[in-house]
Nucleic acid binder design. Structure first.
Lengths: 195, 195
DNA sequence: GTCTATACCGCGATAGAC
DNA sequence: GTCTATCGCGGTATAGAC
């Protein structure tokens, strides 16, 4: 018979991760103490160590989860018939996914330098895999003669930087809806590759 | 008669700022201790406080200097005859200026959250002034019917994010020269505004 | 202007009671 | 599984000798 209630251990662990994510994003990993995280969750410091090995593991798990989610979600996109459609789809997917997770995005790009070397290598590999999937899309379009790009690697960097930038200013309920933002950026992206 | 030698106070102050810039960029403001900065410069901790009020002032001065330099340099660009030329000029200027100061760029965008409110407001105003000068350039091009842009504010955000992204991967002596990078990005920028 | 020495605090992490 | 209490370290900043 399946368990129907989550144990308090599971929810405490989850709440610790949520609090850490919010605090790390707001103040930075190094600036946040384990005491602050405990206070945010409403437990004592010692309790944190029942749910995570140490502060470093907490950071690492958050980044890992974010990037794994990102790659999984990308994999689940329906296959596109042509490069133009694939690029539009990517643009909308990237903006939506990132705008809805601005805390995780922020720490995953900004706190890389606080990862120990082994953790850094693993997280960096995930990030590179994502960049390369966009680069492959651009290669496809160029090989089919649809995109006009002298260097698809640079173009991938350029487009990801441009699209991820949305997280720095977009706020729900602001001047523009997410759908409108996706349309405007989608237009610039299409034009920038020569469509 | 003018002084011909700089006092040791002046050079120590300068060296402290250089060391702080490098260390803050590498490890993050919160992760760097005043002891580390002193060691990097080769003085004792107490000496730092002869040249700066406290750690916060050190960070703030670095950001202030970077953004003031940026706006000054932008002001000194020769006037452009038309929007297309102005946009090309801006692209090259932005990439070159930022690629050559990756440490200052990094802390000026990443350590904003570590500024006390009053300092944040002043630094943020400088950053906004820079963004607005690009937006005005885009408005000009759109009003002249040369650029095809539905929202120049978003376009300015998008282009700055794209161009600043160069600092995350560009290294002198790498696969591409800075001039080539400027050309490739310049091409994407032109196309993205409809040229 | 710089150094030595130090005050005082908060940090990450752990031990042991419950 | 959580709390209380604590260890040992390193943090920012300052005082006073030279």
């Amino acid at each position: 018979m399946a368990r129907t209630r989550t144990s308090s251990a599971e929810t405490t662990g989850l709440r610790i991760r949520e609090a850490a994510l919010r605090l790390f994003a707001r103040h930075g990993y190094a600036a946040v103490s384990m005491r602050q995280i405990a206070a945010e969750v409403g437990v004592q410091v010692g309790t944190l160590y029942l749910h995570t090995a140490d502060k470093q593991a907490l950071l690492c798990e958050l980044m890992d989860a974010h990037l794994t989610d990102l790659l999984d979600a990308l994999d689940k996109l329906p296959p596109a018939a042509d490069p133009e459609t694939a690029l539009d789809q990517f643009t909308r997917f990237h903006i939506r996914f990132h705008a809805q997770r601005s805390d995780a995005v922020f720490i995953s790009y900004m706190e890389l330098r606080n990862l120990e070397p082994a953790n850094f290598a693993r997280v960096e590999a995930l990030r590179r895999a994502y960049e390369q999937s966009l680069q492959k899309l651009l290669d496809w379009g160029r090989d089919e003669g649809r995109f006009d790009l002298p260097d698809t690697k640079l173009a991938a960097y350029a487009l990801i930087a441009m699209l991820t930038g949305v997280t720095t200013w977009y706020r729900e309920g602001g001047r523009l809806s997410l759908d409108r933002v996706e349309a405007i950026y989608g237009d610039m992206v299409r034009k920038s590759v020569g469509l």
